[in-house]
Design a protein around this nucleic acid. Structure first.
Length: 848
RNA sequence: GGGCGAUUAGCUCAGGGGUAGAGCGCCUCCCUUACAAGGAGGAGGUCGCUGGUUCGAACCCAGCAUCGCCCACCA
């Protein structure tokens, strides 16, 4: 029969077929069932901006493994799939395409048309992503696919906003925000990337114009250092530190802001650091957050000198219309012409860039909608502190608490087009209300949309039907676990916790798994611009999806890791190994009269049982790498390397049953990780029904068998000792020998190729150390060559061991302080090695 | 400027108070009827540096060095 099964597993031929089969059988569908416990993972929704990347493949592998395992354990397991409209991200992609293909900006086509294009792009991207998830083998309940722009989801978003608004937690205020001139929108603090940039520090001179004579150092101007001379146009004061003796006389005097002919006053404020620059600071309340605060304190006016697109506004006098970058050099040049430019230094400093489009961010005064966070953060902090949410690894729990403790109010409005329109309406008589629908004739809706993270913050419950208090929500919420990348812990995870506690009076998930970031092979971040991305689909094609999944989980830990193709190769080799084991097990004859298990049978059952225990525990704790190592080494190094060999050589009448049982167990354990290949193997094995619906093995203490474990452990060591001897001494063929006590003689004889003999008289023999055992092999004349050298090596090794043990035991403090178990262990080691040494020396004497 | 993490075999990485682990790569032998994407046997690490705690440190603590990440309003 095995002849009909090809020697290699062909992933391409089976993966799609099994996925269709699972779907047809409704394996992935989950519905509230009072007789079962719920297990629910809500998928972090991929952005509908394009294809899935390695991070998705890793997180998908994690979530799928956990969901499939839970399903096999008898939970009503739901993995809920979804997609995110990705407001700013998608808008940027569509804008770029529009510019590339038609040379138009979004303003050229208008809001309505542009949103239509975004929708089309999202649709296309959506089908691509769903196809990829299927290739991954994602066991999601497709009936429940959610999208943040679905009608029902939009309703949830609006409901949440209106509620927060009516509770006074959302308010409108004029403040400094991070303004992206390219997107012409405010963005949140978290979406600003600061990079070190080589810039310049310009010394700007403000002429004293109050006619009171020279200022500091006898100069007729006050000098200030700035990296952004163009903001000078919006200056409304200069400030010095009140304790700065150099400038006591300067305070209260008046200077002129060049070009705009504005006289401003020199004031004092503690914020100023006397040691920086000249110790005089220019205050531009509309373009710097610190300046804004100073302005508030000192009651200064704010003059906004930039248009939304980053050009200088009409407030900028002669520079109006110039882009901010042009304006910078233009202002500097004009100052220079007028003798008002001092030193210009090279200066490396941090500049904020838009996370999405890369444009330099301008602090810009504008009216935005803000969400008060303090009140929302408090319960979230408590939940994290008191362990309502377990985070793997725990360090991220503490980090999140820290972030929540220092939280700032959240700017939730965006001046973008693709997203949820803010449900605030302005009435004909100046009324402002929040409402899901238009309050009526003459009311106008706010033009802004919501930050994309506002909608995703509701994800764990809005996907389950909230605000409707349906069966699904009651049954599956709170969800069991959220698995996510660290980079969105604050952006997303923290907000879900806050929103969950706000709207559901309970944490959204009991556990959070923070997975690694998959780096490129060279250890740097993957990025399209660097061209070092790896497409998971290509890997699936090349190695098979299961192999890639195994490899990813094997590498997954709390550390980021450089992706290594070797891990996929390892996974592929593992699949092949199991595939061939399938062929072997399948071809293995049934027992004519099944009987009692041999020690070897009991050993592999015992070993399997421990594997179940450890593997399951590792998965439970999200220690995927450890789990993979455990199952891999059992399946390969114990089951295949030893038990199958034993089954070939010295089967018992129970071996056919045990062999099949353990192998079937291995397939079940591995199914959550390698669903396609294991399903195919189980099918070939003739197992009834789908593997995906079968029970996950459970640890059974009754199967622990210390006697069999000890026996086989010693036997394996003895066999290995003989094999080493054969390889080193280049001995082939059968051997005779004296067997040590406490080993399985049948197994030993068969696997070591050693025929047991009674005490041989006078024959030369080799003593082979095997841990605490000695195997004695009868030597023929020609085999004796090299034996002296081997013995000397062994003796030297044994001497070292004895010396080490003796030294340790001679140390009184060790004997006194070390645990008794350790001391006793050391004594035993000494005994064994001393005995060994004696035997070896005696043997050597015989040869000399 | 703060905080977090990393530094272990040639490479990619696990582990973690009681004589160092995996995969790949390397060396020797083997196409033996589950499997050459394989089998058997090997070689190869003073676990970044310096101190400390301990009977015992690769592991705990402190400092340092290098790398990475996160947070922060210094012009």
């Amino acid at each position: 029969m095995s002849q009909q099964i090809p020697k290699n597993y062909d992933h391409a031929a089976v993966e799609d077929r099994w996925y269709a089969e699972w779907e047809r059988a409704g394996v992935f569908e989950a519905d509230p069932d009072p007789d079962k416990e719920p297990y629910c993972i809500v998928m972090p929704p991929p952005n509908v901006t394009g294809a899935l990347h390695m991070g998705h493949a890793l997180n998908g592998s994690i979530q799928d493994a956990l969901t499939r395992r839970a399903r096999m354990k008898g939970y009503e397991a739901l993995w809920l799939p979804g997609l995110d409209h990705a407001s700013i991200a998608l808008q940027n992609v569509v804008e770029r395409n529009l510019m590339r293909d038609e040379g138009k900006s979004r303003f050229d086509v208008g809001r309505e048309d542009f949103v239509e294009r975004c929708r089309d792009f999202a649709d296309e991207s959506r089908s691509q992503i769903l196809g990829q998830l299927k290739r991954l083998g994602a066991s999601v309940d497709w009936r429940r696919l959610r999208y943040t722009m679905d009608e029902r989801y939009v309703d949830a978003v609006l409901t949440a906003f209106v509620d927060l608004f009516n509770e006074g937690l959302i308010y409108r205020e004029n403040r400094i925000t991070n303004w992206c001139p390219h997107d012409r929108s405010a963005i949140s603090d978290l979406e600003v990337n600061y990079e070190d940039v080589d810039g310049k520090l310009y010394a700007l001179r403000y002429p004293l114009v109050d006619g009171l004579g020279p200022g500091p150092d006898g100069k007729d101007y006050a000098q200030v250092f700035s990296t952004r001379p163009e903001t000078m146009l919006g200056d409304t004061a200069l400030v010095v530190n009140p304790h700065d003796g150099r400038y006591t006389d300067l305070v209260g005097r008046r200077v002129l802001v060049p070009f705009v002919d504005r006289e401003i006053e020199v004031l004092a404020d503690d914020y100023v650091d006397p040691s920086f620059g000249t110790g005089v600071l220019k205050v531009t309340p509309a373009h710097d957050p610190n300046d804004f605060e100073i302005g508030q304190r000192l009651g200064l006016a704010s003059v906004n000198v930039l248009n939304p697109d980053g050009t200088v506004s009409e407030n900028g006098g002669p520079f109006a219309g110039l882009d901010r970058v042009e304006a910078r050099s233009a202002v500097a040049a004009r100052l220079d012409d007028d003798g008002l430019l001092g030193e210009v230094r090279d200066y490396r400093h941090r500049v904020g860039h838009c996370d999405r489009c890369g444009a330099v961010i301008e602090p810009w005064l504008s009216e935005q909608w803000w969400c008060s966070m303090r009140e929302l953060a408090e319960p979230a902090i408590k939940a994290l502190e008191n362990g309502e949410i377990t985070v793997y690894p725990d360090s991220w729990r503490r980090e999140t608490i820290r972030w929540l403790e220092n939280i700032h109010d959240w700017n939730v409005s965006r001046q973008l087009w693709w997203g949820h329109r803010i449900p605030v309406w302005y009435g004909p008589d100046g009324e402002v209300i929040a409402s899901k629908e238009s309050p009526g004739e003459g009311w106008e809706q706010d033009a802004d949309i919501l930050d994309t993270w506002f909608s995703s913050g509701l994800w764990p419950f809005a996907t389950l039907g909230w605000p409707e208090e349906g069966e699904d929500l009651v049954y599956f919420y709170p969800t069991t676990l959220l698995s996510t990348a660290r980079e969105i812990m604050y952006l997303w995870v923290a907000r879900m916790i806050m929103m969950g506690l706000r709207f559901r009076e309970g944490v959204p998930f009991g556990k959070v798994n923070v997975h690694s970031i998959v780096l490129a092979e060279d250890g740097t971040k993957m990025s399209k611009s660097k061209g070092n991305t790896i497409n998971p689909l290509d890997l699936f094609d090349q190695y098979g999806t299961d192999a890639v999944r195994f490899g990813l989980l094997y590498q997954s830990s709390t550390q980021d890791f450089a992706y290594s193709y070797e891990r996929a190769e390892m996974g592929r080799a593992f699949v092949t190994k199991l595939w061939n084991a399938t062929r072997f097990v399948l071809s293995y004859p049934e027992a004519e009269e099944p009987g009692d298990p041999s020690p070897a049978d009991r050993w592999i059952l015992s070993e399997f049982n421990r594997t179940v225990r450890d593997y399951d525990a590792f998965l439970e704790e999200c220690e995927f790498s450890e789990a993979m190592r455990r199952i891999y080494s059992f399946a390969w190094n114990q089951f295949a390397d030893w038990y199958i060999e034993i089954a070939k050589a010295t089967p018992s009448t129970a071996t056919p049953r045990v062999l099949r049982e353990v192998f079937s167990g291995i397939l079940r354990l591995l199914h959550p990780v390698m669903p396609f290949a294991t399903e195919e193997m189980a099918s070939i094995m003739g197992e009834e029904g789908l593997l995906a619906t079968q029970r996950f093995p459970e640890y059974d203490p009754a199967l622990e068998d210390e006697d069999a474990d000890g026996l086989l452990d010693r036997t394996k060591r003895a066999v290995s000792a003989v094999r080493s001897f054969r390889a080193e001494s280049k001995v082939e063929g059968g051997l005779e020998g004296v067997l040590p006590d406490g080993i399985d003689e049948g197994v030993f004889a068969a696997l070591a190729g050693v025929k047991p003999v009674e005490t041989p008289d006078g024959a030369s023999r080799a003593s082979l150390p095997a841990g605490d055992l000695v195997v004695e092999i009868l030597l023929s004349e020609e085999m004796r060559r090299g034996e002296i050298e081997r013995l000397r090596r062994e003796i030297s090794h044994a001497e070292k061991e004895v010396k080490r043990s003796e030294g340790k035991l001679a140390n009184e403090k060790f004997v006194q302080n070390a645990p008794e178990k350790v001391v006793a262990g050391e004594r035993e080691k000494l005994d064994v090695n001393a005995g060994m040494l004696e035997t070896l020396r005696r043997r050597l004497d015989e040869y000399l």
